[in-house]
């Protein structure tokens, strides 16, 4: 609870700055309108107008909050205008990509650690894969998976999310699986342990702290992947698509509400993964942090 005060302070400061910026940026439009109508603008007019334009350059925080409220609590969640509905789609893509990413990351790390050939051939490719901008790759993935006949956009979107999320898992797992020192390995040798024993009883459990630490990064990467996929695959649903629609049709409120919905969802995901990490740590006999 000690650290709540600095957080609140920062948030308050940000909100104040935001209001200031909204006032400044939206006032141009107010002045233009007034000039066109040939009327004078008083300061109080200016203040009230900049805070409630329907298509502001920068919506004020309370506008975004009420838009969010309207599109989450007030709307039926089956409605396409509901952020909950759109968020669920993004969430589904994120989680699917996250699971793919974990499976691929762990599998590749295992092959890399257990075989020399794997180490020499796979690792460079994994690194190169992350240097290709995902935005360039996204349409190709959509086209290819359509050609294979996956039907929906869900699969290519999840592949794009997985493409970003497997890498942190891979890197952490390689580090984790190779973390046991020579003494630990020698001890198992004195027991005449098989390679499979070394893997299941020593390498894998040793890698768990690394694995859990990578999950937080991976879930964030998967989320970014899901949103980017929605932005760049001409998808019509999901928070990313809402952002795009908002900006293309000049509906800043939709854009900003989608952005904040995305931020809240991402925060929620990271919090959930963090709680899971804590629980797992506890189960594995770790001391409380």
């Amino acid at each position: 609870m000690k650290n709540i005060l600095p957080i609140v302070t920062i948030v308050l400061a940000l909100i104040v700055i935001w209001y200031g910026a909204a006032f400044k940026m939206n006032s141009t439009w107010t002045y233009d309108q007034a000039a066109r109508a040939g009327t004078e603008v008083t300061f109080s007019d200016l203040l009230s107008d900049t805070m409630q334009q329907s298509r502001p350059l920068l919506p004020a925080p309370h506008q975004i909050a009420s838009e969010l409220w309207n599109t989450t609590v007030e709307k039926k969640i089956t409605s396409k205008r509901s952020m909950v509905y759109q968020g669920m789609i993004t969430l589904k893509t994120t989680l699917l990509g996250f699971v793919f990413g974990i499976v691929i990351g762990v599998a590749l790390a295992t092959v890399i650690v257990l075989s020399r050939v794997g180490r020499l051939t796979l690792m460079p490719w994994a690194i190169i894969s992350q240097t290709i901008p995902i935005v360039a790759l996204a349409p190709i993935i959509v086209v290819l998976s359509n050609a294979v006949g996956t039907g929906t956009l869900m699969v290519p979107k999840a592949i794009i999310a997985a493409y970003l999320s497997f890498y942190p898992v891979l890197v952490s797992m390689v580090k984790g699986l190779t973390s046991p020192d020579q003494m630990q390995l020698d001890l198992l040798r004195t027991y005449g342990a098989r390679q499979s024993d070394v893997f299941w009883k020593l390498r894998l459990p040793s890698s768990m702290p690394y694995f859990f630490a990578s999950l937080k990064v991976a879930v964030a990467a998967s989320f970014v992947g899901a949103v980017v996929a929605e932005l760049s695959t001409s998808a019509i649903s999901g928070l990313g698509a809402r952002m795009l629609i908002g900006s293309q049709f000049g509906e800043p409120m939709i854009m900003w509400a989608a952005l904040f919905a995305a931020a809240i969802l991402a925060g929620l995901l990271i919090f959930l993964v963090g709680s899971f990490e804590k629980a797992a740590r506890h189960l594995m006999g770790g001391r409380a942090l």
Binding site: M183, Q184, D186, L187, L188, T190, Y191, G192, A193, D197, K201, L202, P205, M208, M284, G285, G286
Partner: peptide
């Protein structure tokens, strides 16, 4: 299984209880 080896560092597995650690060679 002629010998047991004790290293300078205890090298217990932090994710196993003491019983679990002693059980390790028995499992293997």
């Amino acid at each position: 299984r002629a010998y047991g080896y004790v290293f300078q560092a205890a090298g217990l597995y932090p994710w196993r209880t003491i019983r679990g650690n002693i059980q390790l060679p028995l499992e293997i």
